[in-house]
Design a protein around this nucleic acid. Structure first.
Lengths: 146, 146
DNA sequence: TACTTCGTGACAGATGTAGTTGCAATGGTT
DNA sequence: AACCATTGCAACTACATCTGTCACGAAGTA
């Protein structure tokens, strides 16, 4: 199972907001053109980011404001906003293993801590990257292009 | 997106194979009863594990043999056998971002290494656990029960 | 041959993803 | 007030994946 493209689209959105903030009004139409998708898809993702408290979306005029500094929004924050996991668990179990089987009734206990540590390894790596890294990374790439 | 239950089911299967190897013939029917699912589901997973070279499945009599020692099969090996990722990438991008947009044409370059490091953090944690950890863990849990 | 078990194709139902259309609501501008 | 660009959202489609189920042929043992 791959993680949905909405996560990387969200990072794309944040990068655009920062890159074009002085040149264009960054609307869902503008973002949809950069990402090559439909404006409604963008608005749905913006709604998720807004519900997570990461941005404010301005109606009427259009535009997006961050609620915190770039360096204070990590990839993990974006991931959490975009990919709501049931009970917060990355790994799924089969429902109701057989309690009469010694393995069946202990499989959760056996696996839970190990799976948790795998999930946490991924999440703590996500916390190392911030939107500020996207800003500086994009500035470098654009400088090379010029 | 949660990772499908097939992964934890596969770990359940391996645990059963080891736990019951001296008491029962471990068939897809037996496993389906412990996991509480359909034997065909089990056989499909066994086929994946077999194709990955982790086990041999015995027809006619029934039963499962590992091709390597328990300590030489990691969670990552099982994960790879069960969850084939397109191009090996955990994270998906939106297809064909706009090459006329400076962000659109650089977004891959900007994100690739960061996403890769996140994926690798997860995978290298998966490599730390082996089926032998499942064996010893289950033995401890069963000893506590008694 | 008879029996057990695996292998596999076909299908169904539920869920999730991505895309599209239409329209009401919002908030500037004139 | 009228106009306009934009967001918010519901409804729908198309498609893929996951899980489960049935049916039946293939493999191997007794």
């Amino acid at each position: 199972m791959q993680i949905s493209s909405r996560f990387t689209v969200a990072l794309h959105i944040f990068t655009c907001v920062d890159t074009f903030k002085d040149e264009h009004k960054v609307t869902s139409d503008f973002l949809a053109a950069s990402i090559n998708t439909n404006p409604v898809i963008i608005r749905k993702i913006l709604t998720q980011l807004k519900n997570a408290g990461l941005i404010n979306v301005i109606r009427g005029t259009g535009g997006i404001e961050l609620t915190r500094d770039l360096k204070d929004i990590t990839f993990y924050d974006v991931y959490q906003a975009i990919e709501p996991l049931e009970d917060g668990d990355l790994f799924r179990f089969h429902e109701s293993p057989n309690p009469e089987c010694p393995v069946g009734r202990n499989i959760h206990l056996l696996l839970d801590d190990k799976l948790k540590s795998i999930q946490e390894a991924m999440e703590s790596e996500m916390k190392k990257y911030t939107l500020n890294d996207l800003r500086s990374g994009m500035q470098e790439l654009l400088a090379k292009e010029a």
